[in-house]
Design a protein around this nucleic acid. Structure first.
Lengths: 266, 266
DNA sequence: AAACGCCATTGCGATATTTGCAACAATGAA
DNA sequence: TTCATTGTTGCAAATATCGCAATGGCGTTT
């Protein structure tokens, strides 16, 4: 778990230092995990990285996320329509986890990788989830807070509350350079049969490549994709539309983790 | 590693039996891994399954596969053109590992999941790799052999040799119900800058949904997608086209695993 | 070109962790 | 309600792990 997207490969010594475990132990552990293909080692550079076994296991997890099963097809379709990279993300603890991504072929594009975590307060999808999950904003405020990613990141609780109120009434969220300089995004919610928000679908684009008229179109298409996925998951538009916030509220549990993951502990 | 696509969740007792480890040990191990989110436990059914941590790690692996980075965009584009689910797969040991998949929105479609392994001799992509990797066919024959998946699966070494000769000269492979009853597929090779085959791109479809005229179009589009990805990976068409088999041959090492994964062992 | 320094690996003893059994607790079925 | 199955926990024996130091292999520096 000391590997990350920033440092996908480490030497034995680096791992040893990070984990505060002696080199000999790391060496033995790495060889053991390599034999099970959970790690792999470049014989030339001697750097260690995640192995194919982990990928196989990870695929097993994502297969069991109902959202991913329904969203895959709509996602690639959305990419073709809006001509920008699109993503499906879910709430994971106090962060936003990208579980599926489809990239446009354009040279100028924003790249978000599957499996990557991002802040809730600085992303369109994250703000949408903050808006639809009562209590979540406060929980995040107490734990990680709202670090600034760019000069446009909303870092104050008061301003976030205001922003979320607008998102709540619109049922849709935008992001203008709050996470990455020059990049914008929009996100639509995805509901399941019970009317609960289970994730978001978002389009991410370089602001320089989007004209004013494009914005509306991208937003509409994204919203429509979210609606389609919701329907395929059993969501009943006519029944739930007006009730969405309340149902989402009723179903929400403070520890958002507990729904998907069970912390087993006395 | 006792989890699979067929059995994505197991009880403590089942794990204990499969691993020949006492229930108490499994219980403690599971709780430990749950705390690290590598596993998760459904509190109601008490079934254990792979956790989000494994997914995060797996994403780290796939990010480092150069092929996946270049192919993602072309893949979704191919799906839109041929209107059938498409996949990118690589050689992993003696099997074919699907590393990326994009599904069509059609109701009638063939579903292959990322992270799933399939037989080489019963798939279009697998046969293509068998054709381009000298020695691989014999290695597979000795290890797993060629189990029949359907009545049309080619199970004899002699007939496979004949089939592969045809594929080699065509540089392209088809599959008619050799893996799944009613399903067909075609696959094109993907080469890297060194002219080595690094993977295949394939389209999978229900044979009932494809007319005779469609076949040619799907094949052409798939082949073209493979070529595009190859080029983006630095492949030089004019130089390599005629040399592909030989270069691929020269670069091939008997243990295909060793390229990607380092078996660390005395 | 040669020597140096760094990094990873391995043998070995002392230590600490894990194991397996058994009983307990909890859940679901009859 | 009772039975049967399944998962969790305490405890002592036993095993595997840890850390150290030395070896071997590489890349780098002078």
């Amino acid at each position: 778990m000391c590997f990350s997207h920033e440092e996908p490969e480490l030497s034995i010594g680096e791992i040893s230092r990070r984990l505060n475990v002696h080199k000999s132990v790391v060496s033995r552990l790495v060889t053991a995990l390599c034999s099970k293909r959970m790690l792999q080692k470049d014989p030339k550079t001697r750097k260690v990285s995640i192995g194919v076994g982990a990928f196989t296991l990870g695929a097993l997890f994502i297969k069991r996320v109902p959202l991913e099963q329904h969203a895959a097809a709509s996602l690639s379709r959305l990419v073709e329509t809006v001509e920008h990279s699109c993503h499906i993300a879910v709430l994971e603890g106090h962060r936003l986890l990208t579980i599926a991504s489809a990239e446009t072929r354009k040279a100028l594009r924003v790249i978000l990788r599957t499996g990557e975590y991002r802040y809730l307060h600085a992303t369109a999808g994250g703000k949408l989830l903050l808006a639809l999950h009562p209590g979540l904003l406060e929980a995040v405020a107490e734990s990680t807070g709202f670090p600034a990613m760019t000069t446009k990141t909303i870092t104050s609780l008061a301003r976030l509350r205001k922003e979320l109120a607008g998102i709540r009434s619109a049922g849709f969220a935008w992001n203008f350079e709050e996470s990455t300089r020059g990049a914008g995004a929009c996100a639509a919610p995805i509901f399941d049969a019970s009317g609960q928000v289970v994730g978001v679908i978002s389009a991410v684009y370089p602001l320089s490549a989007v004209s004013k008229t494009d914005f509306a179109a991208i937003g509409d298409k994204t919203r429509e994709a979210g609606r389609l996925i919701s329907v395929s998951m059993g969501w009943q538009p006519e029944i739930c539309r007006s009730e969405v916030p309340s149902i989402a509220a009723a179903r929400f549990v403070p520890s958002a983790r507990s729904r998907v993951h069970q912390r087993v502990e006395a």
